[in-house]
Design a binder for these strands. Structure first.
Lengths: 217, 217, 217, 217
DNA sequence: GATGAATGAGGGTTCATTCAT
DNA sequence: TATGAATGAACCCTCATTCAT
């Protein structure tokens, strides 16, 4: 019998290449989608490998033909999202003519991610704290830092250029925006009447102009 | 000092009163504080009863002299906070002369809660989804609805009175505010330079006026 | 071979079907027999899941691959026996030409059960009181009532027909017989010289004629 | 401070003399009665020390001022009953003019015990098997043997004297009688219409003459 | 006599994971 | 690829018992 993959990996070690070279198989993708939804809904720790398997209609042991471990599953889910997200943010930075546009584009782009990678975004929000306890997920910290840098750069540029208030507390503004935008993933309904795009526009308005009526102050 | 709720019976295991235990003792309060911190930091499921006991310097079994169960602990932690919070919100509604003031007071009052009940607020944010799976924690849903009603009433009043923009989407505005305010609990540092009060004022400013410089639009 | 009952849901913990497990496997039957013996010998509460597993040569956790819980094990053990027993009693009622024959057949049939389902009979005797505290085991009460009805019907028929003494206290006679017959399970030795059949005949004689020598009174 | 009693006793050791010399205090007797009832109803293992204490209105730790251990409680309960019972049986043996009378008296005397020491009798029936695993309760085996010897002697005498059937299987007859008589403790109701005395007479009739109508056979 | 806090061993159960088939 | 049986560690909780106050 020819041994193809090794997948030894003492728990929480690095990701041993799953089955035959890459993550291509469709079954894999299905399983990953199922896992992502469950992780997003019930939490990573709150989801058992058996639940994933049950939902997929197989036995829990069979999942290990596709993935090394539960950790590998989140890992893959998160990496895919983060790769997309970093590229998207970079594009915004490159293409925006001014800070006003850039901020708006970052918001739009974030809501697009919420739409496309809903489960992954939720997991990133909820489980980063837990996962970064393990070396394997150190990259989550780096990803957060990258995201933070992107937003702060735009905010600083805008303040310097007189687009944003001169007394703007960058750190606080960043947190304000980040929290309200990303937390939206928890209630966003992809099949609801409010599309991600519509919500994004409203949020941009909130962020830029606040909620007061003109003339009120 | 707030009077705790204590063992209201109901699902997830009969709540047999632990021997002699009651709501009074100081030890109880200590243990509860330890548990709250751990739940906030590591999640409810991510915290083991042994960890709580270890941190308290006793054996895990000894915890059950004071509490019926792990569930009872979160229950008590959450009830204390919610009781405080509901009263605080009611006071704001009663005492605010206009919507502008009311919104500002709600924000201040929320940040005071974040300061005083940091762990409980974090738990309420993070674990409501999980806990409301169990009958015993149905009241969390009700509490969320109460909070929502409070904010929305103020927003509607303000819009009607012409204080807030006439095209304000109440539902969306509520979520925008709620998410950014309450999520702050995750990074708020009670010993940091930015006090809860200072953050509150800045957030009020963001919410009311946005981040744009005057004249920009 | 009797078809087992298997996980009918109901109280005392949700009965989540163990992975893949079903009513068919031989391993299951082995494990059930081991558990039954231990429950009969040491009591249900007096038997630990670890003891069952040790006796079976596996780890305690592995039992849960086959059964939902300790409760499920007794449940299955008892249901199999009761199903058999009810059918057997019904057959006697249907086939007996007169009360004398019927009583004798009921005794024989009970001793056959003691022989075939020794452990289950002992558990039914010893643990019904404890188990019926839980909703899940309500059916034990019903089973007892069915058995009682069967015997009493025969006793009443016989008294009416003049086969049994006209002053026979049915209720007391039933208890007298039931207690002496079923309690025999505690000392009956399936490999002893006295077979179940022999004991049954002697017991029939005791019941019908007493122990006095003819002419004595 | 004057140390009066030692009560060290490594678990399941011999009974260290309880408090100041004897078992006289009334509180003791109350507590013992409570424990006996619970042991009889819920089993020895099925009764927790805390339940006993709760029923008595004290904390579980406080029980240990009266008794060395849970074991000591059953021990005392059983010893009192057995002492009474042995004396009673001896009296019967001494005073009965013939086997017929002796058997009847043994039955009456057993039902008197069931009435007076109901809980103890039930415990002796149900828990002997478990308790005799421990050295401390070896005397239970001896007590059973004594009881057996008493009955068998009467049965043998009666058979030899032609009072009982000449083909009587002594061993089986003993078990038949013992089981039916002692098991009655499980349903006997001291406040019911059927007094222990009445039941005894009926049982004597069953034992001696059986249930058949005269002339039937 | 009683309390209240704690111990320490053990109970039933869960769950990620392994592996022969 | 999947199954089914098993592992082993950990989890929440129980309970008899101890002991300072």
């Amino acid at each position: 019998m020819i041994v193809v993959s090794t997948k030894r990996v003492s728990a929480r070690g690095r990701a041993a290449a799953p089955e035959s070279g890459n993550g291509g198989s469709e079954r894999r993708a299905e399983l990953l989608a199922i896992a992502a939804d469950l992780f997003a809904t019930s939490g990573f720790q709150g989801t058992t490998v058996r639940e994933i398997a049950d939902t997929a209609g197989i036995l829990s042991g069979s999942l290990y033909h596709h993935f090394d471990s539960k950790d590998s599953m989140v890992d893959e889910i998160l990496r895919e999202f983060l790769e997309y997200q970093q590229k998207a943010y970079d594009d915004v930075l490159r293409d925006s003519p001014d800070a006003r546009t850039a901020i708006a584009e970052l918001v739009r782009c974030s809501f697009r991610a919420i739409h496309r990678y809903r489960a992954a975004v939720a997991i990133f929000q909820n489980e980063s704290g837990y996962l970064t306890r393990f070396e394997r997920f150190d990259y989550l910290r780096k990803a957060s830092a990258d995201i933070e840098r992107t937003w702060k750069r735009v905010l600083e540029d805008g303040r310097r250029a007189g687009v944003f208030r001169s007394d703007l507390n960058i750190k606080l503004a960043y947190r304000f925006i980040r929290d309200t935008v990303w937390t939206a993933v928890h209630w966003y309904n992809p099949r609801g009447r409010m599309t991600a795009g519509v919500i994004a526009e409203q949020y941009i308005r909130f962020l830029c102009d606040g909620i007061m009526a003109p003339g009120q102050e």
